[in-house]
Design a binder for these strands. Sequence first.
RNA 1: GGGCGGUUAGCUCAGCUGGUUAGAGCGCCUGCCUUACAAGCAGGAGGUCGCAGGUUCGAGUCCUGCACUGCCCA
Length: 922
Amino acid sequence: MPHELPKAYEPGAIETRWAEYWVKEKLFSVKTPPEGETRPVFTLLLPPPNVTGRLHMGHMLNQTQMDIIVRWHRMRGFITLWLPGTDHAGIATQMMVEKQLEREGKKRRELGREKFVERVWEWKKLYGNAILDQMKRLGASVDWDREYFTMDENLSRAVREVFVRLYEEGLIYRGNYIVNWCPWHETAISDLEVKHEDVQGKLWEIRYPVVGSDEFITVATTRPETMLGDTAIAVNAKDERYTHLHGKKVLLPLMNREIPIITDELAQPEFGTGAVKVTPAHDPNDFQAGLRHHLPQINVMDEHAHMNQNAGPYAGLDRFEARKRVLADLREQGYLVAEKDYALSIGKCDRCGTIVEPRLSEQWFIKIKPLAERAKEAVESGEITIVPDNYRQIYLNWMNNIYDWCISRQLWWGHRIPAWKCDGCKEFIVAREAPTQCPKCGGAKLEQSSDVLDTWFSSGLLPFTTLGWPEKTRDQAVFYPTTLLITAYEILFFWVARMIMFGCHFMEGHEQDPAIKKASGWQDKKNDSVPFRQVYIHSLVRDAAGEKMSKVKGNVINPLDIIERFGTDATRFTLAAMAAPGTDIAFSESRTGGYRAFANKIWNAARFMFMNVDRIEPGLRPATTEGGSPHKGVARFQSATLEDRWILSRFNRAVSDVNEALATYRFHEAANRIYDFFWGEFCDWYLELIKPRLNFEEGADQSGARAACANLVNLFDASLRLLHPVMPFITEEIWQAIYEGKVPYKSIALAEYPQASEEQFDLGAETEMAILQDLIVSVRNLRAELKVEPKVKVPIEVFAHEPEIRKMIDHNRGAVERLASVEKITFVDSSLANRTGARGTARFDVHLLYEQKIDVAAECDRLKKELEKIERGIGSGQRQLGNEQFLSKAPATVVENLRKQQQELAVMLTKTQSKLKELGCQ
RNA sequence: GGGCGGUUAGCUCAGCUGGUUAGAGCGCCUGCCUUACAAGCAGGAGGUCGCAGGUUCGAGUCCUGCACUGCCCA
C-alpha cells in the first residue's frame, strides 16, 4: 500500500490524534524499577498548576522545555518519570467558589464551613482538570497514572505528619505577631504574597501636646488613622533636642489618652523631626519596639479593616473613611501641622490588589533559620546546581535575609492545621489524629483550629510525598532526589526554596539506590536528601512588544489560540528557539509563522521521500542494526557520492551539537541547529543533489536508485528522531507513515535518540562540498547579474588552480549543471580573473559564456565594495601577523588560520583589482 | 535605598569560556508556479554591536564610568 500523506500540512488533525494516542496507550507510564535495576533514571516533577489555572504562555514555555528534556532522556534510554499533578491553590480556589456563590446571592459564612468545602470539591471535580487537559494538547509526555492532587488523602496525611514533626522539633510555633493582613480575603498572607507598589501619597505631621507643659512633639505618618492605637512616642536617646522630655508623657489627641515618651532606636534623629509615634498593633517595627518597652498593643481595626471599639468615636468606619475623619478632626483641633506630598510604597495583596494592613493576630509560624541553613549549604556546596548561574546568588541572598514564615491562613479551603484547642485550659494540642482528651487538663471539649495551611506548605513537600513518604518506598530509592526542576523565576522563593528546605530536613540520611545513582551519572554527589540535583530557571514570556503580559493591559496571548493557528509543533519550536537562557522572550507570531513553514517544509520533504519510495522500492523501511533495533545514528548509510559523505558528516555534526546544547539547556541552540541542518543542508542541497540518482526509468541505474532511496529513508528516519523532542507530533506522524503501521515501537518517542559517531565525520567531503556550493552560488550570482532568463541554460568556463579541485568539480559537473542551470562546463588552463563578468574564490574562477552586456556601473560598484572588504581584511591581518606579540602569544591554530586566510585574500585582491582595471572602473 | 539584567540590521532576537570579513527569522527589493514544498525557490539591499575610557597581540565578548531601559527585593 503506498504511503499516503495529504498534500497540505494541517497540524490540527494530526496533533489531536497523536495526543490522544499517547495518553490512551500509556506510553509514558513508568513502573517502579525493581532491585538490581542498572539503567539510568531521570525524574522530573511538574510544577503543579493551580486547579483554577488556565494554560498561559508561561506554562507552555515551561512545559515545552520540560517535555523536550524528558523526551530526550527517554529516547536515550533513561527510565524517565515525569510526574504530573495539580495544586489545590487555597486562596485562588476559595475565591472562585465564593464568586460563584455570590452570583447565587449566597455567602460563604451563611453556608458554613462544611457545606462550603463540599462546594469547593464539587467545583474542583467539574473544572479542576481543565489545565491538565490542555497539557495533553501540548503533548506533554507525563505519567498520567501517577497524577496527584495536593489534597489527596495520602498527601494530606503526609502534610499532617510534617506539621507534627516540625512542631515536636520546636520548629513550628504559635504567637501574636504583626502579619500582612488582606481585609478582602480576611486572612493573613506571607511576605511573598505582598506586592509593593510605588505611589504618590501624603505625609501628615501631627503634634502631640506634652503633658504638664505647653510644648508639643511633632511626628509624621502616612497612616494617621493608626494614631488611635498609639501607645508611645519614641525619640532617640542621643537626640539632644528631646533630652529634656525623657520620662515625660504626651496626651494622645482625639483619644485623650496619656502615653509615654520612650527612647528607642526606632527614632532616627536625621529623619523628619526625629520623633515617631509608636503603634505596636499596626506596624511591624513599632511592634518590636513595643516588645522592648512592654507597651500595650491596642488593635484599632477588625478583620475587615474597619475601626473597632478601641477606636472610640471612629468605631465602625472603614480605615480610609476613618483617615479622613481623623485628619479633619486633627485640623479642626489644631493638631495637624502640615500635609506634604510623599512618595511611598504600599503593599497590596498579590491576589486581589487590596491594600494590605499590618495587623496583630495569632498565627502559626515556621522557625526558618535552621531549615534555611541546610538549604543554603546544599546550593553553596554544589549538591544542587542552579542554571543560569546568576540565580544562585539571588537564591543565597534571599536565604541569608529570610524571616520566619507565617503558615496559617484564615481560609476554609486547604489542609486544616492539625491543632486542637482545649476549651478547659485553652492550650493547643498538636496531633496526627484528632485527640479525644486534653493531655494537660483532661478536658474533653476540644476544637480543631479553624485555620488552614499556606498552599506552599504542602507543595513544598511534593518531591518526597509524591513518592510515598513518610513510608520508605522503592519509588523513593529510585526516583529521589529528582533529577531536575524546570520552573519560572517567580516561584524561586515561593516553592523552590521551600522544597529545598523541606527536602534537606525530612529526607536527611536518605540514599538513592547506588547502582541507579551511578548509572545516572550522579556518583559524585554526596547529599541525597536534596529534592533535585539541578534547577533550571526559564525566562519570562512577554508579548511581541516586550511588555509583560497582564489581564489589565489586555495583552495576554492565549497559547491555545496560537496553537490553533500555527500548530503545537510550531509553537513549541518557537518557544524553544527563542529561549536563550537568562533572557526574556518577546513572543513573536511572525516567528511562529516561520516555524510553521519549517514544519511544512518537513512535511513536503516527507512527501518527496514517500513519492520515491513508492516508485522505487515500495515497502522500504529504515534499516536496523544487527540486533534488529534502529540505529543510534543513521543505519546502513552507504556513501556512494560526495553528497552522501557530506550529508552524513553534517548530520553527525548536527547531532553532536544538539546533544551538547540539550545537555546544557541551550534550547535555542538545539532548535536552531536542527532547523539549519534540515532546511539549509538536507532540503536545500542534499535532496536537490540526489534527484538525478532517484531516476528509476527503464535503462537508468536502478540499483543506484535503490541505494539512494534507502539512504534517504535512513537519513530521514534519523532526522525525525533528532527533531522529535522539539516537534513531537509531525515527527510521530511521518515516522509512523514510514513504517506503514508496522512500527518497531509504539511510538517514535520510544525510539533511540541519535548519537554522533566519530568515524562518520568527513572533513574532506565538507571542504569539497563547500567549494562546489561556492561554484554553484557564483554561477547563480552571475546569472542574476546578467539577467539571464531562468529557463536559459548557459555554458560556463571554469579555471581551477589545483588539479584535485578541477577533478572534483569535473566529477560533480552534473550537480553544477542542474543546480545552476548550466549547459556545459569547459575547463580552461589560465585564470579568468581578468575576464569581464567573471567570479571566483581563491580556489577557482568561473565565467559565463553569455552574450548579454553586463551593467558596468553596477559591476564596478559591487567590485569596489568587495575590494574594500578585502583590503580591510588584509589590513587587519597584516597588522596582526606583523606583530611579534601576536605571533608569540596567540595559539598556533589561530595564527595558522589567519595565514591561510591572508593567502586567500591576497589572491582575491589581485583578481578584484585586475577586474576593476579591466572594466575601467573609476 | 539594595540587587540583578538588557541596549547588536526596519522589527524580534542569536552570538557559550575574547581569535577568520558580526549571524538568523520576519519585513523590504528583484526574478521565478524549476512536477516535495508559492507556508516555496534563486538572488539582493540593510549594522561605526548605547556612549566614553581602559585591559589585551587581538574586544560585540573582559574591566570602569555614564546614559537609557526592564525586573526583583526592602
